[in-house]
Design a protein around this nucleic acid. Structure first.
Lengths: 232, 232
DNA sequence: ATAAGAATATGTTTTATAACACAAAATTAA
DNA sequence: TTAATTTTGTGTTATAAAACATATTCTTAT
Protein backbone atom coordinates (compact mmCIF):
# COMPACT_ATOMS: atom_id res chain seq x y z
CA UNK A 1 0.00 0.00 0.00
CA UNK A 2 1.34 3.41 -0.91
CA UNK A 3 0.77 6.79 0.57
CA UNK A 4 -2.00 7.74 -1.80
CA UNK A 5 -4.14 4.96 -0.38
CA UNK A 6 -3.75 6.53 3.00
CA UNK A 7 -4.56 9.97 1.73
CA UNK A 8 -7.80 8.45 0.55
CA UNK A 9 -8.58 7.20 4.06
CA UNK A 10 -7.92 10.61 5.49
CA UNK A 11 -9.49 12.86 2.89
CA UNK A 12 -12.61 10.77 2.43
CA UNK A 13 -13.29 10.49 6.17
CA UNK A 14 -13.14 6.72 6.19
CA UNK A 15 -12.53 6.78 9.91
CA UNK A 16 -14.34 8.76 12.59
CA UNK A 17 -11.22 10.57 13.71
CA UNK A 18 -10.59 12.31 10.39
CA UNK A 19 -14.06 13.77 10.02
CA UNK A 20 -13.21 15.91 13.05
CA UNK A 21 -10.30 17.65 11.36
CA UNK A 22 -10.25 20.72 9.13
CA UNK A 23 -8.74 20.40 5.67
CA UNK A 24 -5.65 22.21 6.84
CA UNK A 25 -5.24 19.78 9.74
CA UNK A 26 -5.76 16.82 7.44
CA UNK A 27 -2.97 18.03 5.21
CA UNK A 28 -0.61 18.45 8.12
CA UNK A 29 -1.18 14.80 8.93
CA UNK A 30 -0.84 13.63 5.35
CA UNK A 31 2.52 15.41 5.12
CA UNK A 32 3.84 13.92 8.37
CA UNK A 33 2.44 10.43 7.88
CA UNK A 34 4.84 7.55 7.35
CA UNK A 35 3.87 4.17 5.97
CA UNK A 36 5.37 1.07 7.61
CA UNK A 37 4.95 -2.52 6.54
CA UNK A 38 5.20 -5.35 9.05
CA UNK A 39 5.58 -9.04 8.39
CA UNK A 40 3.58 -11.73 10.11
CA UNK A 41 4.47 -11.88 13.84
CA UNK A 42 6.72 -8.82 13.59
CA UNK A 43 6.77 -6.54 16.63
CA UNK A 44 5.53 -2.97 16.07
CA UNK A 45 6.62 -1.73 19.47
CA UNK A 46 7.60 -3.41 22.71
CA UNK A 47 6.83 -2.98 26.40
CA UNK A 48 9.26 -0.59 28.08
CA UNK A 49 9.96 1.48 24.97
CA UNK A 50 9.15 5.17 24.77
CA UNK A 51 6.01 5.93 22.72
CA UNK A 52 6.56 8.10 19.66
CA UNK A 53 3.76 7.52 17.20
CA UNK A 54 0.06 7.27 16.86
CA UNK A 55 -0.30 4.09 14.83
CA UNK A 56 -3.11 3.62 12.40
CA UNK A 57 -3.74 0.13 11.08
CA UNK A 58 -4.58 0.38 7.36
CA UNK A 59 -4.44 -3.27 6.34
CA UNK A 60 -3.97 -6.51 8.26
CA UNK A 61 -4.55 -7.52 11.87
CA UNK A 62 -2.68 -6.47 15.00
CA UNK A 63 -2.60 -7.68 18.60
CA UNK A 64 -1.70 -5.77 21.75
CA UNK A 65 -0.23 -8.05 24.39
CA UNK A 66 1.67 -8.07 27.65
CA UNK A 67 4.14 -10.54 29.06
CA UNK A 68 3.70 -11.64 32.63
CA UNK A 69 4.99 -14.28 35.02
CA UNK A 70 7.53 -16.57 33.35
CA UNK A 71 7.05 -15.02 29.92
CA UNK A 72 3.39 -16.02 29.79
CA UNK A 73 1.58 -13.77 27.32
CA UNK A 74 -1.84 -12.15 27.67
CA UNK A 75 -3.45 -10.66 24.56
CA UNK A 76 -5.16 -7.46 25.70
CA UNK A 77 -6.76 -6.07 22.55
CA UNK A 78 -7.28 -6.83 18.89
CA UNK A 79 -6.88 -4.08 16.29
CA UNK A 80 -8.56 -4.01 12.88
CA UNK A 81 -8.43 -1.48 10.03
CA UNK A 82 -8.98 1.44 10.43
CA UNK A 83 -8.22 1.67 14.15
CA UNK A 84 -5.69 3.69 16.14
CA UNK A 85 -3.38 2.63 18.94
CA UNK A 86 -0.05 3.33 20.60
CA UNK A 87 -1.09 6.74 21.95
CA UNK A 88 -2.07 5.77 25.52
CA UNK A 89 1.47 5.56 26.90
CA UNK A 90 2.39 8.91 25.32
CA UNK A 91 -0.61 10.61 26.94
CA UNK A 92 0.20 8.94 30.26
CA UNK A 93 3.79 10.16 29.93
CA UNK A 94 5.20 6.71 30.62
CA UNK A 95 6.84 3.89 28.64
CA UNK A 96 4.63 1.31 26.94
CA UNK A 97 3.19 -1.21 29.41
CA UNK A 98 2.27 -3.58 26.58
CA UNK A 99 3.58 -4.58 23.16
CA UNK A 100 2.00 -4.57 19.71
CA UNK A 101 2.61 -7.17 17.02
CA UNK A 102 1.22 -8.08 13.62
CA UNK A 103 -0.97 -11.21 13.43
CA UNK A 104 -0.42 -11.22 9.68
CA UNK A 105 1.37 -9.04 7.10
CA UNK A 106 0.08 -5.54 7.86
CA UNK A 107 0.36 -1.95 6.68
CA UNK A 108 0.36 0.86 9.19
CA UNK A 109 0.58 4.61 9.18
CA UNK A 110 2.60 6.40 11.84
CA UNK A 111 1.85 9.98 12.92
CA UNK A 112 4.31 11.59 15.34
CA UNK A 113 2.56 12.11 18.68
CA UNK A 114 3.99 15.64 18.89
CA UNK A 115 1.85 16.50 15.89
CA UNK A 116 -1.18 14.81 17.41
CA UNK A 117 -0.68 16.80 20.62
CA UNK A 118 -0.42 19.97 18.58
CA UNK A 119 -3.66 19.21 16.79
CA UNK A 120 -5.41 18.36 20.08
CA UNK A 121 -4.33 21.64 21.61
CA UNK A 122 -5.98 23.50 18.75
CA UNK A 123 -8.96 21.28 18.07
CA UNK A 124 -11.12 20.45 21.02
CA UNK A 125 -13.19 17.89 19.18
CA UNK A 126 -10.06 15.84 18.63
CA UNK A 127 -9.39 15.94 22.37
CA UNK A 128 -12.95 14.75 22.97
CA UNK A 129 -12.43 11.98 20.43
CA UNK A 130 -9.50 10.63 22.45
CA UNK A 131 -11.34 11.07 25.74
CA UNK A 132 -14.17 8.93 24.41
CA UNK A 133 -11.82 6.35 22.90
CA UNK A 134 -9.81 6.01 26.11
CA UNK A 135 -12.98 5.84 28.20
CA UNK A 136 -14.38 3.01 26.10
CA UNK A 137 -11.11 1.10 26.25
CA UNK A 138 -10.95 1.53 30.02
CA UNK A 139 -14.47 0.18 30.44
CA UNK A 140 -13.55 -2.79 28.27
CA UNK A 141 -10.40 -3.39 30.27
CA UNK A 142 -12.28 -3.39 33.58
CA UNK A 143 -14.84 -5.83 32.20
CA UNK A 144 -12.04 -8.04 30.91
CA UNK A 145 -10.52 -8.25 34.40
CA UNK A 146 -13.68 -9.84 35.75
CA UNK A 147 -14.21 -12.10 32.72
CA UNK A 148 -10.67 -13.45 32.76
CA UNK A 149 -10.43 -13.97 36.51
CA UNK A 150 -13.87 -15.39 37.23
CA UNK A 151 -15.01 -17.41 34.24
CA UNK A 152 -14.02 -21.01 33.76
CA UNK A 153 -12.04 -22.26 30.79
CA UNK A 154 -15.05 -23.00 28.59
CA UNK A 155 -16.56 -19.60 29.30
CA UNK A 156 -13.30 -17.82 28.57
CA UNK A 157 -12.72 -19.62 25.29
CA UNK A 158 -16.34 -19.14 24.18
CA UNK A 159 -15.96 -15.45 24.92
CA UNK A 160 -12.70 -15.27 22.98
CA UNK A 161 -14.43 -16.72 19.92
CA UNK A 162 -17.21 -14.12 20.21
CA UNK A 163 -14.59 -11.38 20.57
CA UNK A 164 -12.86 -12.64 17.41
CA UNK A 165 -16.16 -12.54 15.55
CA UNK A 166 -17.00 -9.05 16.84
CA UNK A 167 -13.58 -7.73 15.86
CA UNK A 168 -12.89 -9.37 12.54
CA UNK A 169 -16.26 -10.75 11.45
CA UNK A 170 -17.20 -13.71 9.29
CA UNK A 171 -16.20 -14.72 5.77
CA UNK A 172 -18.83 -14.61 3.01
CA UNK A 173 -20.32 -17.87 4.30
CA UNK A 174 -21.45 -15.91 7.37
CA UNK A 175 -19.98 -18.44 9.78
CA UNK A 176 -16.21 -18.83 9.26
CA UNK A 177 -14.10 -16.49 11.40
CA UNK A 178 -12.09 -14.11 9.25
CA UNK A 179 -9.05 -14.52 11.48
CA UNK A 180 -6.82 -17.60 11.31
CA UNK A 181 -4.80 -17.66 14.47
CA UNK A 182 -2.52 -20.18 16.14
CA UNK A 183 -3.93 -22.17 19.05
CA UNK A 184 -1.28 -20.50 21.18
CA UNK A 185 -2.72 -17.05 20.38
CA UNK A 186 -6.20 -18.32 21.15
CA UNK A 187 -4.86 -19.56 24.50
CA UNK A 188 -3.15 -16.21 25.17
CA UNK A 189 -6.37 -14.39 24.40
CA UNK A 190 -8.39 -16.48 26.83
CA UNK A 191 -5.84 -16.93 29.63
CA UNK A 192 -5.16 -20.66 29.46
CA UNK A 193 -2.45 -23.05 28.30
CA UNK A 194 -2.25 -24.02 24.63
CA UNK A 195 -3.14 -27.61 25.52
CA UNK A 196 -6.31 -26.51 27.23
CA UNK A 197 -7.27 -24.23 24.34
CA UNK A 198 -6.93 -27.18 21.96
CA UNK A 199 -8.77 -29.54 24.29
CA UNK A 200 -11.63 -27.13 24.95
CA UNK A 201 -11.92 -26.32 21.23
CA UNK A 202 -12.23 -30.07 20.55
CA UNK A 203 -14.99 -30.17 23.13
CA UNK A 204 -16.92 -27.47 21.27
CA UNK A 205 -16.47 -29.45 18.03
CA UNK A 206 -17.89 -32.60 19.67
CA UNK A 207 -20.85 -30.57 20.90
CA UNK A 208 -21.42 -29.32 17.34
CA UNK A 209 -21.01 -25.68 18.42
CA UNK A 210 -18.17 -25.12 15.96
CA UNK A 211 -16.19 -26.95 13.28
CA UNK A 212 -12.44 -26.71 12.95
CA UNK A 213 -10.26 -27.21 9.88
CA UNK A 214 -6.71 -26.27 10.77
CA UNK A 215 -6.90 -22.62 11.78
CA UNK A 216 -10.24 -22.19 10.05
CA UNK A 217 -12.96 -21.97 12.70
CA UNK A 218 -16.62 -22.09 11.69
CA UNK A 219 -19.18 -21.08 14.27
CA UNK A 220 -22.30 -23.23 13.95
CA UNK A 221 -24.13 -22.08 17.09
CA UNK A 222 -23.31 -18.55 18.10
CA UNK A 223 -26.18 -18.42 20.60
CA UNK A 224 -24.77 -21.43 22.45
CA UNK A 225 -21.30 -19.84 22.52
CA UNK A 226 -22.78 -16.69 24.05
CA UNK A 227 -24.61 -18.81 26.61
CA UNK A 228 -21.42 -20.66 27.58
CA UNK A 229 -19.57 -17.35 27.73
CA UNK A 230 -22.20 -15.81 30.01
CA UNK A 231 -22.59 -18.66 32.50
CA UNK A 232 -18.96 -18.47 33.62
CA UNK B 1 -17.85 18.78 56.04
CA UNK B 2 -19.58 21.81 54.66
CA UNK B 3 -19.33 23.55 51.34
CA UNK B 4 -16.77 26.09 52.48
CA UNK B 5 -14.28 23.29 53.06
CA UNK B 6 -14.69 22.32 49.47
CA UNK B 7 -14.30 25.86 48.22
CA UNK B 8 -10.97 25.79 49.99
CA UNK B 9 -9.92 22.71 48.02
CA UNK B 10 -10.89 24.38 44.78
CA UNK B 11 -9.68 27.91 45.32
CA UNK B 12 -6.38 26.92 46.89
CA UNK B 13 -5.51 24.43 44.14
CA UNK B 14 -5.24 21.50 46.52
CA UNK B 15 -5.72 19.13 43.60
CA UNK B 16 -4.04 19.18 40.19
CA UNK B 17 -7.30 19.53 38.31
CA UNK B 18 -8.26 22.90 39.81
CA UNK B 19 -5.00 24.62 39.04
CA UNK B 20 -5.93 24.28 35.39
CA UNK B 21 -9.07 26.36 35.70
CA UNK B 22 -9.55 30.11 35.52
CA UNK B 23 -11.15 31.88 38.46
CA UNK B 24 -14.38 32.21 36.53
CA UNK B 25 -14.40 28.45 35.81
CA UNK B 26 -13.64 27.69 39.45
CA UNK B 27 -16.64 29.73 40.52
CA UNK B 28 -18.92 27.95 38.10
CA UNK B 29 -17.92 24.69 39.75
CA UNK B 30 -18.26 26.03 43.28
CA UNK B 31 -21.79 27.17 42.46
CA UNK B 32 -22.80 23.83 40.94
CA UNK B 33 -21.06 21.61 43.44
CA UNK B 34 -23.14 19.47 45.79
CA UNK B 35 -21.88 17.82 48.94
CA UNK B 36 -22.98 14.24 49.66
CA UNK B 37 -22.23 12.18 52.75
CA UNK B 38 -22.10 8.41 52.58
CA UNK B 39 -22.12 5.94 55.42
CA UNK B 40 -19.79 2.97 55.72
CA UNK B 41 -20.51 0.44 52.95
CA UNK B 42 -23.08 2.72 51.28
CA UNK B 43 -23.26 2.57 47.50
CA UNK B 44 -22.40 5.81 45.65
CA UNK B 45 -23.49 4.52 42.26
CA UNK B 46 -24.18 1.09 40.83
CA UNK B 47 -23.29 -0.80 37.67
CA UNK B 48 -25.90 -0.28 34.96
CA UNK B 49 -26.95 3.20 36.09
CA UNK B 50 -26.54 6.27 33.90
CA UNK B 51 -23.57 8.46 34.90
CA UNK B 52 -24.45 12.00 35.93
CA UNK B 53 -21.70 13.38 38.10
CA UNK B 54 -18.01 13.77 38.39
CA UNK B 55 -17.40 12.63 41.95
CA UNK B 56 -14.64 14.10 44.04
CA UNK B 57 -13.71 12.30 47.25
CA UNK B 58 -13.05 14.90 49.92
CA UNK B 59 -12.85 12.73 53.03
CA UNK B 60 -12.89 8.97 53.60
CA UNK B 61 -12.08 5.98 51.42
CA UNK B 62 -13.92 4.64 48.38
CA UNK B 63 -13.74 1.43 46.34
CA UNK B 64 -14.71 0.85 42.72
CA UNK B 65 -15.84 -2.71 42.17
CA UNK B 66 -17.61 -4.97 39.72
CA UNK B 67 -19.75 -8.02 40.27
CA UNK B 68 -19.05 -11.07 38.17
CA UNK B 69 -19.94 -14.72 38.01
CA UNK B 70 -22.34 -15.71 40.83
CA UNK B 71 -22.12 -12.31 42.52
CA UNK B 72 -18.39 -12.63 43.12
CA UNK B 73 -16.92 -9.15 43.54
CA UNK B 74 -13.68 -7.76 42.13
CA UNK B 75 -12.36 -4.50 43.55
CA UNK B 76 -10.96 -2.55 40.60
CA UNK B 77 -9.64 0.65 42.11
CA UNK B 78 -9.18 2.41 45.42
CA UNK B 79 -9.95 6.12 45.72
CA UNK B 80 -8.44 8.49 48.28
CA UNK B 81 -8.93 12.21 48.89
CA UNK B 82 -8.66 14.28 46.70
CA UNK B 83 -9.30 12.03 43.71
CA UNK B 84 -11.94 12.09 40.97
CA UNK B 85 -14.03 9.26 39.56
CA UNK B 86 -17.34 8.42 37.95
CA UNK B 87 -16.63 10.32 34.74
CA UNK B 88 -15.43 7.44 32.52
CA UNK B 89 -18.88 6.04 31.72
CA UNK B 90 -20.19 9.51 30.86
CA UNK B 91 -17.34 10.12 28.43
CA UNK B 92 -17.84 6.66 26.92
CA UNK B 93 -21.56 7.42 26.56
CA UNK B 94 -22.55 4.18 28.24
CA UNK B 95 -23.96 3.09 31.62
CA UNK B 96 -21.56 2.39 34.48
CA UNK B 97 -19.76 -0.94 34.09
CA UNK B 98 -18.71 -0.91 37.74
CA UNK B 99 -20.04 0.34 41.08
CA UNK B 100 -18.59 2.66 43.70
CA UNK B 101 -19.04 2.28 47.45
CA UNK B 102 -17.68 3.85 50.61
CA UNK B 103 -15.21 1.79 52.65
CA UNK B 104 -15.88 4.07 55.59
CA UNK B 105 -18.00 7.18 56.27
CA UNK B 106 -17.04 9.55 53.43
CA UNK B 107 -17.73 13.03 52.12
CA UNK B 108 -17.92 13.61 48.39
CA UNK B 109 -18.52 16.49 46.04
CA UNK B 110 -20.62 16.00 42.92
CA UNK B 111 -20.22 18.15 39.81
CA UNK B 112 -22.76 17.62 37.01
CA UNK B 113 -20.95 16.11 34.02
CA UNK B 114 -22.75 18.54 31.70
CA UNK B 115 -20.83 21.33 33.39
CA UNK B 116 -17.57 19.39 33.17
CA UNK B 117 -18.16 18.85 29.44
CA UNK B 118 -18.86 22.55 29.03
CA UNK B 119 -15.61 23.43 30.77
CA UNK B 120 -13.67 20.91 28.68
CA UNK B 121 -15.03 22.36 25.48
CA UNK B 122 -13.71 25.77 26.46
CA UNK B 123 -10.53 24.80 28.25
CA UNK B 124 -8.20 22.55 26.40
CA UNK B 125 -5.92 21.95 29.36
CA UNK B 126 -8.83 20.38 31.20
CA UNK B 127 -9.36 18.04 28.26
CA UNK B 128 -5.67 17.12 28.41
CA UNK B 129 -5.99 16.53 32.15
CA UNK B 130 -8.69 13.92 31.56
CA UNK B 131 -6.77 12.38 28.64
CA UNK B 132 -3.79 11.88 30.93
CA UNK B 133 -5.90 10.59 33.81
CA UNK B 134 -7.74 8.09 31.61
CA UNK B 135 -4.50 6.99 29.97
CA UNK B 136 -2.89 6.26 33.33
CA UNK B 137 -5.92 4.36 34.54
CA UNK B 138 -5.98 2.31 31.35
CA UNK B 139 -2.32 1.37 31.74
CA UNK B 140 -3.00 0.34 35.32
CA UNK B 141 -5.99 -1.71 34.29
CA UNK B 142 -3.99 -3.58 31.63
CA UNK B 143 -1.26 -4.33 34.16
CA UNK B 144 -3.85 -5.52 36.65
CA UNK B 145 -5.21 -8.02 34.12
CA UNK B 146 -1.85 -9.76 33.95
CA UNK B 147 -1.21 -9.56 37.70
CA UNK B 148 -4.58 -11.01 38.66
CA UNK B 149 -4.61 -13.77 36.05
CA UNK B 150 -1.01 -14.95 36.25
CA UNK B 151 0.22 -14.53 39.83
CA UNK B 152 -0.41 -17.12 42.48
CA UNK B 153 -2.37 -16.44 45.66
CA UNK B 154 0.63 -15.33 47.74
CA UNK B 155 1.80 -12.98 45.00
CA UNK B 156 -1.66 -11.50 44.56
CA UNK B 157 -2.16 -10.88 48.28
CA UNK B 158 1.32 -9.44 48.71
CA UNK B 159 0.59 -7.09 45.83
CA UNK B 160 -2.75 -6.09 47.35
CA UNK B 161 -0.98 -5.11 50.58
CA UNK B 162 1.50 -3.00 48.62
CA UNK B 163 -1.37 -1.38 46.72
CA UNK B 164 -3.08 -0.54 50.02
CA UNK B 165 0.11 1.03 51.30
CA UNK B 166 0.64 3.01 48.07
CA UNK B 167 -2.94 4.29 48.12
CA UNK B 168 -3.60 5.01 51.77
CA UNK B 169 -0.15 4.99 53.36
CA UNK B 170 1.01 4.13 56.87
CA UNK B 171 -0.01 5.45 60.28
CA UNK B 172 2.47 7.54 62.25
CA UNK B 173 4.35 4.39 63.27
CA UNK B 174 5.40 4.11 59.60
CA UNK B 175 4.29 0.49 59.35
CA UNK B 176 0.57 0.10 60.14
CA UNK B 177 -1.69 0.34 57.08
CA UNK B 178 -4.03 3.31 57.33
CA UNK B 179 -6.92 1.29 55.96
CA UNK B 180 -8.80 -1.23 58.08
CA UNK B 181 -10.70 -3.46 55.75
CA UNK B 182 -12.62 -6.71 56.09
CA UNK B 183 -10.89 -9.92 55.04
CA UNK B 184 -13.61 -10.22 52.44
CA UNK B 185 -12.57 -6.91 50.83
CA UNK B 186 -8.95 -8.00 50.93
CA UNK B 187 -10.02 -11.18 49.14
CA UNK B 188 -12.05 -9.21 46.57
CA UNK B 189 -9.08 -6.98 45.92
CA UNK B 190 -6.75 -9.89 45.25
CA UNK B 191 -9.11 -12.26 43.45
CA UNK B 192 -9.41 -15.10 45.94
CA UNK B 193 -11.91 -16.51 48.44
CA UNK B 194 -12.15 -14.99 51.90
CA UNK B 195 -10.86 -18.25 53.42
CA UNK B 196 -7.76 -18.12 51.30
CA UNK B 197 -7.15 -14.45 52.09
CA UNK B 198 -7.28 -15.29 55.82
CA UNK B 199 -5.11 -18.37 55.40
CA UNK B 200 -2.49 -16.60 53.28
CA UNK B 201 -2.44 -13.63 55.65
CA UNK B 202 -1.75 -16.08 58.53
CA UNK B 203 1.11 -17.47 56.47
CA UNK B 204 2.65 -14.00 56.17
CA UNK B 205 2.29 -13.56 59.94
CA UNK B 206 4.08 -16.88 60.58
CA UNK B 207 6.86 -15.75 58.27
CA UNK B 208 7.16 -12.50 60.24
CA UNK B 209 6.42 -10.40 57.13
CA UNK B 210 3.43 -8.74 58.80
CA UNK B 211 1.55 -8.70 62.08
CA UNK B 212 -2.21 -8.71 62.34
CA UNK B 213 -4.44 -7.42 65.11
CA UNK B 214 -8.04 -7.61 63.95
CA UNK B 215 -8.19 -5.40 60.88
CA UNK B 216 -5.00 -3.65 61.84
CA UNK B 217 -2.20 -4.82 59.55
CA UNK B 218 1.41 -3.91 60.27
CA UNK B 219 3.95 -4.46 57.55
CA UNK B 220 7.27 -5.59 59.03
CA UNK B 221 9.09 -6.46 55.82
CA UNK B 222 7.95 -4.45 52.84
CA UNK B 223 10.87 -5.59 50.71
CA UNK B 224 9.87 -9.22 51.19
CA UNK B 225 6.27 -8.41 50.27
CA UNK B 226 7.46 -6.77 47.07
CA UNK B 227 9.58 -9.81 46.33
CA UNK B 228 6.67 -12.18 46.86
CA UNK B 229 4.49 -9.90 44.75
CA UNK B 230 7.00 -9.97 41.92
CA UNK B 231 6.89 -13.74 42.27
CA UNK B 232 9.49 -15.54 44.30
C1' DA C 1 12.21 -34.45 -1.83
C1' DT C 2 13.61 -34.95 2.57
C1' DA C 3 14.92 -33.61 7.01
C1' DA C 4 14.09 -30.61 10.86
C1' DG C 5 11.33 -28.02 13.41
C1' DA C 6 6.79 -26.16 14.73
C1' DA C 7 2.15 -26.67 15.72
C1' DT C 8 -1.59 -29.60 16.95
C1' DA C 9 -3.68 -33.28 19.49
C1' DT C 10 -4.60 -36.20 23.48
C1' DG C 11 -3.79 -38.97 27.58
C1' DT C 12 -1.97 -38.85 32.52
C1' DT C 13 -0.37 -36.74 36.76
C1' DT C 14 0.09 -33.04 39.86
C1' DT C 15 -1.20 -28.97 42.20
C1' DA C 16 -3.28 -24.68 43.34
C1' DT C 17 -7.31 -23.06 44.87
C1' DA C 18 -12.28 -23.28 45.44
C1' DA C 19 -15.80 -25.40 48.08
C1' DC C 20 -17.38 -27.16 52.19
C1' DA C 21 -17.79 -27.69 57.14
C1' DC C 22 -17.63 -26.10 61.59
C1' DA C 23 -15.91 -23.51 65.64
C1' DA C 24 -14.55 -19.32 67.92
C1' DA C 25 -14.50 -14.51 68.26
C1' DA C 26 -16.34 -10.11 67.49
C1' DT C 27 -20.24 -7.01 66.36
C1' DT C 28 -24.77 -5.61 66.27
C1' DA C 29 -29.49 -5.67 67.61
C1' DA C 30 -33.16 -6.45 70.90
C1' DT D 1 -27.28 -7.97 79.13
C1' DT D 2 -28.36 -11.41 76.23
C1' DA D 3 -29.35 -13.26 71.84
C1' DA D 4 -28.53 -13.11 67.04
C1' DT D 5 -25.70 -12.27 63.35
C1' DT D 6 -21.54 -11.39 61.08
C1' DT D 7 -16.69 -12.00 60.67
C1' DT D 8 -12.61 -14.57 61.36
C1' DG D 9 -9.99 -18.78 61.62
C1' DT D 10 -8.72 -23.76 60.30
C1' DG D 11 -9.07 -28.32 58.90
C1' DT D 12 -10.73 -31.37 55.02
C1' DT D 13 -12.31 -32.57 50.50
C1' DA D 14 -13.20 -31.77 45.70
C1' DT D 15 -11.93 -30.05 41.34
C1' DA D 16 -10.37 -27.03 37.59
C1' DA D 17 -6.56 -26.23 35.22
C1' DA D 18 -1.52 -26.48 34.85
C1' DA D 19 2.28 -29.41 34.03
C1' DC D 20 4.14 -33.18 31.88
C1' DA D 21 4.58 -36.71 28.33
C1' DT D 22 4.34 -38.41 23.79
C1' DA D 23 2.28 -38.88 19.21
C1' DT D 24 0.93 -37.03 14.94
C1' DT D 25 0.34 -33.65 11.52
C1' DC D 26 1.66 -29.60 9.28
C1' DT D 27 5.41 -26.02 7.72
C1' DT D 28 9.64 -24.50 6.44
C1' DA D 29 14.28 -24.80 4.93
C1' DT D 30 17.87 -27.08 2.54
Amino acid sequence: MIKSALEKVISEDLAEIWSILTNEEKHRIIDAFEIHNFKKNQIIYAEGEAPEYLWCLLKGKVKKFKEGVGGRVQILRLIRPVQYFGYRAYFAQEPYVSSAGAFEASTLGAVPMELVMDLIRNNNNLALFFIKELSRNLGGSDTKIVNLTQKHIRGRLAEALIVLKDNYGYEDDNSTLKIYMAREDLANLSNMTTSNAIRTLSGFVNEKIITVDGRRIRILNEAMLKKISKFG
